[in-house]
Design a protein around this nucleic acid. Structure first.
Lengths: 199, 199
DNA sequence: CTTGGATTTAAACGGGTGTTCAGTTAAATC
DNA sequence: GATTTAACTGAACACCCGTTTAAATCCAAG
């Protein structure tokens, strides 16, 4: 068992994933070659295959990793009221996605480049995340706090609205991330017909 | 001037664009080859160059065409109230986008595959469309009908929310297109703090 | 029926693709 | 210092890429 301590694989492995994430987000999975990724890492193309069985799996692992991090980070306070939970969800979604623009971009844009089996896995994780929000909405409706015609539709509407932030928000722009979070909280609060959202 | 009547170009041209639209939407611009498009049309790859100078322009024309159609079809009733105009915008956006899923997909997903000049053109058209909605929101705020903290943010939030419909709505599903339009109208009405959106 | 231009083919161009693998390098263990 | 083995190179594999071009085909007009 040689080269366990000073091994480069501890360094090269993450660097491969970082380069792939950045390049896939920037140019798209199909438009990026293994040689481009390798060149970014400072290695020959063949060396990448020490870290991934193939290009498809490299994409899949990036997406699965992102979704797992998302689900792990999202822990709604079970003691909070539905309104507080909804508020927390909105702020969390905006902040978490803003911190990982490349991973977000890939997770939403490269789904069609996944093989069916991999697609199903990512899709399941995505639905799991949506369920977190839907449960909050259902709890609010049950408590008579929210007025939502269809919690499934409202869930998808809110998530689409929140995810859209990543396409235009720039930290050096007119509004701070906190401003944006505040505004979206108000809009979502009103959207679900919760009290406290009126004029 | 021979072959003006029985010319194939009247037939092949549209067929090229249809095939490209479908394939680009399904697999992504970078993942689709000119030979695939040609094969779909029933022609050799070289024949495509009678109808487009290159692959990039083919994509660009599809996107520009879609945006132009979108802007031409979007004519808010200048006599209507801001609330009625907003309602009309929501219903129009959902219906128009649902009728052209492939073009919508391309217009939102393939922006990064456009060369800078082409990107700027499409981006300008997109902003033109957003301005239609923002003007409605501004009119509503000026009339004291809407309560919106930031019309730009609200515009982007509403459009992201509406466009998201195309990713999940299926006409053979639980809800009809009309149901979805109704629900989004209510959610948007509440989101902008307009009267008539409360419980 | 010939003509001439629109339309398409077939082949070629230079270059890039994902992936494999024998061989080289270099670091950790004995 | 010899041995072991993870890490990497460099070349090759078979194939696909967008685009160009000369030649063939097709068909309305004269």
């Amino acid at each position: 068992m040689a080269r366990t301590a000073g091994s480069h694989s501890d360094i090269t492995g993450p660097r491969v994933r970082e380069a792939a994430l950045r390049l896939f987000a920037r140019h798209g999975f199909a438009a990026v070659s293994m040689r481009q990724i390798a060149s970014e890492v400072g290695v020959q193309a063949g060396a990448l295959y020490n870290y991934t069985p193939d290009k498809q799996t490299l994409l899949f692992e990036l997406m699965r990793n992102h979704m797992n991090e998302l689900l792990a980070a999202m822990r709604p306070d079970p003691a909070g009221s539905p309104s507080a939970q909804l508020d927390g969800f909105v702020r969390f979604h905006i902040a978490f996605h803003h911190a990982r623009p490349d991973a977000v971009f890939i997770a939403y844009m490269e789904l069609r480049n996944l093989e069916p089996e991999n697609f199903a896995t990512i899709e399941a994780l995505r639905r799991q995340y949506e369920t977190v929000l839907e449960d909050i909405l259902c709890a609010g409706v049950d408590a008579g706090l929210f007025d939502v015609a269809d919690t499934k539709v409202a869930t998808l509407a809110v998530i689409a609205m929140l995810t859209g932030v990543t396409t235009w928000f720039r930290p050096d722009g007119r509004l701070s991330l906190g401003d944006v979070q505040d505004q979206y909280c108000q809009m979502v609060t009103r959207l679900v017909g919760a009290p406290g959202g009126s004029v």
